[in-house]
Structure formats: structure tokens, C-alpha cells
Design a binder for these strands. Structure first.
Lengths: 259, 259
DNA sequence: CCAAAAGTGTTTAAGCTACACCCATGA
DNA sequence: TCATGGGTGTAGCTTAAACACTTTTGG
């Protein structure tokens, strides 16, 4: 905040010129997996690489507005419909080969959407499995430092499911408790125990509210599950902790009388 | 992230030039109150106003390094000694009257330090009580959007004491459990119940480790308290929740046999 | 000896885990 | 009628909250 004058050319010791971008990590659950929307870059640098949607912040908007605008321009997705929060800012001097670019990364939670449409700067868009991107050795390297951003986003999402009601942002209303539980399973990699999960969700005031209708029974039978909508609560108190090991929960789920 | 060329003049539709600053909210406990280090600005804009220490990110450093450097230049405090984390980025178009300035705010936790020395851009430095700044109607208005940043920082600190061991970053080693409890009291505005707090701290593996010595008894008597140092743990699991009301804890502390 | 402060014990309530059972439904 | 899956019951463990008691020290 030390005060100097406006720039002309480059006055060392004053403020060097930066570009500022807003990038968006928008996640959803699809086919039982946590997925992130990436765009295939049409232009250099990193032409042909997959990258987070995003772009330069304009002179009359803040980073949040830029994130919303760029996501719509590049993918057709309207982030106004979803929860969107700031994640962190990435400012390594060499993170963009062209010049100093500081990126304000954002994180959005979306229910399952259709395929996104590629904007003019994008050759394609795709909902990538986060697990595949981060764990599969055959996965493509992401542009810039976007893999680091994605890892930070994943950690944030995992933590936020523990102490907020944001899991419900991943499902389309109305939804069943089982669908909500599947969100936790996809994000954490292991399912919370079914019976206790149901009780916890219903006992947390304002997490979900009954929608007044029931869903379809499964093809192989079973009762019609109650449908819910998102409630007004934002925090989970006490928190919903992740189970300790996958084996235990799988075992529980396989037990007869527990299916 | 859409690619364009480096700037010359201003090409609308390409990337507008921004300045990027790193501001630091460095907090400590002093005289029983949570305090933040501010500098009195010597230059316009906001000359004479109190502001967070900070300044422009240089061309060859990231925001974290700039935060450390600027804090040292303006106040003589070396943030390398303390916990320093990114808080959030502030990018409202009108937040600086001169031009577009995006600020990457940082948050640091320091034990009690002496008075800081004012650097060349600062007329003075002062450890302000956070409560006074945010609640007292006679408190001066801070420069830029620094009050908003300070409010966000306070919320972050309050939350982090619940689920991390960062409270120990506010005390000088070696320290007593009572000093650690006073940190919680200053940050939350209410003291955790003494007996249960002691048990919780000691039961959390790696929160504190015995220093092997004992401190001084108070002037009015009492046993010599055990001294501790910070342990390797960073997270509190389960969390240490804040008490619900100030009245209850005050009452508890006033009760005989509990003083 | 008294007040203050540190450390520890105890009782009660609350939450979570694990497991069991019942019921509605579709094949 | 049987397999599937949603909803609920419950015993046992762990943790936290509230309160009491003992001990050590300086005045």
C-alpha cells in the first residue's frame, strides 16, 4: 500500500505492471465421481492443453465478477446459479511464460449439468474425473499451475463437507438422502455409514427440508425414498467427520440387513 | 487465462494493467487484548490514516515474499519467525483511488513483540486493540478497505483457534496453560472453562510438550505452574469449541474453588 | 492462616459407532 | 415370495460440560 504514482513505462521501485486473471474450479458429481470442468486451450501458451476456465479481470469488475463472466463465456455455465467462493491467489513469478500474471482462483459447487459448450477461446470442454486427473499417470498435465490449484480446491471441498452443508449444492433438487450420501462418497472416496448418516442429516436443523413428495423405487424394489430440498443452514455443528477407513464401510454396506 | 500479448498502452479486450500489493494483518496478544500492527501513512492517498502494513509486489517475487519484505521494511518485524498464511484477495475496482490495485492479504500470528519501528513510508506504528478498532465509535477509519480485511482476518483467527493449534503461536515459549487459555479469552472474548481447557490441551497429542521447568508463582500465591513449548501437532481433532455465552464462564471463574 | 492459582477427580449429558430389525416395493 | 433399499431402534463407548476438591505458594 505504499503510495506512488501511476505507471508510465516502468519505474523501478514503483509498482510493476501485472495482469490479473480469475480462474474457476467448478466441481460436480457425475457417474459417481467428483468431476471438474476443464477447457482445452485453443491459443498459446499451452495450446492444446487442458486448463481451468478463466480469463483476465477487466478494468471495471472485481475478480468475482470476472470469474462468473469468464465461466459463462468459455463454457456457457452460469455460476450465478451456484455457490461460488474465492479459493486462493497464485502469484509465482514464472507461472505464466508471457508475463507476470496473478490468478485469483475461485471454487464453485454445481449439481450435475449437461455437457458444457466451448466458447471462442476453447477448443472443447469436458467434465474430468478429479481422481483421474490427479492420480492416473496417463492423465494429461494441466496448463500453468492449474494442477496445484485443483489439488488445493479438492482439499478445500473435502474439508468443507465436514463442517458445512455444501454437499447439498452437488445434487439437483429434489434429492434423496442416498444421493446426498453418494456426494460424500465421491468426494471423500469412502461412504459414511448409511444409518448414522441419515440420522445426522435429519437431526441437523436446516440441512435439508422435506419436499413433500417421494421418489421412484429402484428397479429391483424397495420403498419410495423421501425427497428433500436444501435447507437454510450453512454450517454443520457438530461436524460430520469422515470415516477412518474404506474397508470398514464397505464391510458394513455388504452386510445383510444393511444393504 | 486467454492468451494475448504483453501490454503497450492499453488494448481494450486484452489484459488491463493492474498493480498488485501484499498487505499483512499481523496479530498478537498484549495486555490481555488481541492487537493488530498498523502503520500511519506518510503519503497520499490516505496520508495520516492508519493502514495495514504492505506494499507493491515486485516483478521477481510472489505475494508471500512481498508480504514478508514489506512487513520488515515498514515495521522492522521479521515475519519469517512466525506463522504466515494467505488470507484472501481484495479486488474491488474502486478500492484504491489512484488506479486498479489488487491486494493479496496475508495473516500472521506473533507472540508479544516490542513496539515496532516505523520505516520510511510510515510516520508511526502501533499495536491497536482489534476490539477498539472494530467496535469503538471513536476509533479512526482505516485506509482503503482495510477495515473489511481486518474483519475477515478476525473471523479467520477465531475459527482457526477452534480446529488448529495456532493459539500457541501467540505466546512466547516457554508458556503456561493459563497463558494459552488467555489467548483464547482475548480472541473469542470469553474464556474457556479452566479445568476442561487444561484437560483438552494436555489430552491433545502434540499440542504442547513439557518444557521441563516450572514458572513463577503469582504475587498473591499459588503453585508454580508447569511450563510448556509448542508441540508438532497442527490440527485439533476433535475441535475446541467456543463457549456459548460470556456470562456462564465469568460465573464459573468467580465461583470459589474455581478461581 | 488465608487467598489465589494449578492440578485432578467425578458426575451427568450428549454424540457417535456399530449392529439389528422392520417395512414397502418391484420383479 | 424374495431381494432390495429406506427408515428406525438401541446398547456401548467416547467425549464434553459442570462442579468439587486438594495442593502449593506468597503475603
Amino acid at each position: 500500500m505504499a503510495g506512488k504514482q501511476a505507471p508510465e513505462g516502468y519505474d523501478p521501485g514503483a509498482h510493476p505492471p501485472f495482469a490479473v486473471t480469475a480462474d474457476i474450479v467448478i466441481m460436480t458429481i457425475r457417474d459417481g465421481a467428483l468431476r471438474v470442468l476443464l477447457v482445452e486451450r485453443r491459443k498459446d501458451p499451452y495450446a492444446g492443453s487442458w486448463a481451468l476456465p478463466g480469463g483476465f479481470v477487466e478494468i471495471d469488475e472485481d475478480a468475482h465478477a470476472a470469474a462468473v463472466r469468464e465461466l459463462a463465456e468459455e463454457t456457457g455455465v452460469d455460476a450465478e446459479d451456484f455457490h461460488l467462493e474465492q479459493l486462493a491467489t497464485y502469484s509465482a513469478p514464472d507461472r505464466d511464460p508471457r508475463m507476470r500474471v496473478v490468478s485469483v482462483a475461485h471454487l464453485a459447487f454445481a449439481p450435475e449439468l449437461g455437457d458444457a459448450v466451448a466458447g471462442s477461446d476453447a477448443a472443447a470442454t469436458r467434465w474430468w474425473s478429479v481422481d483421474d486427473l490427479l492420480a492416473d499417470p496417463d492423465a494429461p498435465a494441466l496448463a500453468f499451475d492449474h494442477e496445484e490449484i485443483l489439488r488445493d480446491a479438492l482439499e478445500r471441498v473435502r474439508a468443507k463437507l465436514e463442517y458445512t452443508t455444501l454437499a447439498s449444492r452437488f445434487v439437483t433438487e429434489p434429492f434423496t438422502i442416498a444421493e446426498l450420501r453418494a456426494v460424500y462418497g465421491a468426494v471423500w472416496g469412502l461412504l459414511p455409514a448409511r444409518a448414522n448418516f441419515t440420522r445426522k442429516v435429519l437431526a441437523t436443523d436446516g440441512f435439508v427440508v422435506p419436499a413433500g413428495t417421494t421418489g421412484e423405487a429402484s428397479r429391483s424394489g424397495g420403498p419410495r425414498p423421501t425427497l428433500y430440498r436444501r435447507g437454510p443452514a450453512t454450517d454443520l455443528q457438530p461436524a460430520l467427520l469422515r470415516p477412518r477407513s474404506k474397508a470398514e464401510v464397505d464391510a458394513e454396506d455388504a452386510v445383510r440387513g444393511e444393504g
